[in-house]
Amino acid sequence: MSALLISGVGRVFPGVRGGKPVTALQPTDLSVPSDDFVTILGPSGCGKSTLLRIVAGLDRPTSGTVTLDGRPVTGPGPDRGMVFQSYTLFPWLTIEDNIGFGLREKGASAAEARETVAYYVDQVGLTGFEKHWPKQLSGGMQQRTAIARALANDPKILLLDEPFGALDNQTRGLMQELLLGIWERQHKMVLFVTHDIEEAIFVGSRIVTMSARPGRIKSIIPVDLPHPATTR
């Protein structure tokens, strides 16, 4: 049984140019059981990205610890896939090479990598765009590629930081269903950050709400709705 355990995690940024230190995140506790889809909802600047970056190992908490399957998180690693708030595809790699980046790093055989990449290209609906450069794709297609790139690595947990924030409502709806579809097939832990209430309810099985400055968890609400992606 895999689980993510966040205990007492807080982050204080040192003051900028003689200013006062900024408490981005007050000490926070949260546990995410395996195959749970948790959305983190909160206003801009409440520390959502900070929390996600700490779980990813890209930032160090000033207090507390994060453990995944009992192992403390000390730095970034392939067991925690991340989709960033901004577009972070490697512009010099084609879509398929972007998706295969982690596999190559892991030392997967060429045949194995090709098969996995082809599977995820299909999953996120990018067939026909394998040889394109990222800048030849629309924003939504780039974020789908980023999701595929994270998933191809087979992480234990998927961390998504407002992945659909820049998309129009219609595309966003399609992307949410796509993500839910994949989640229902693979049942990974997901931490999904958003500031959109509808989105939080639609995709999450649990909603963590946060309040602004200094950021802290206000409530944790289970969503008892039947999963829309399956009922629609």
């Binding site: 190992g57 890209l58 970034p76 690693g77 991340m82 972070t88 490697f90 994270a150």
Partner: peptide, 10 residues
């Protein structure tokens, strides 16, 4: 951000 993305990919 690209460096960080690479680290999270292992």
């Amino acid at each position: 951000d690209l460096v960080e993305a690479a680290y999270t990919l292992g």
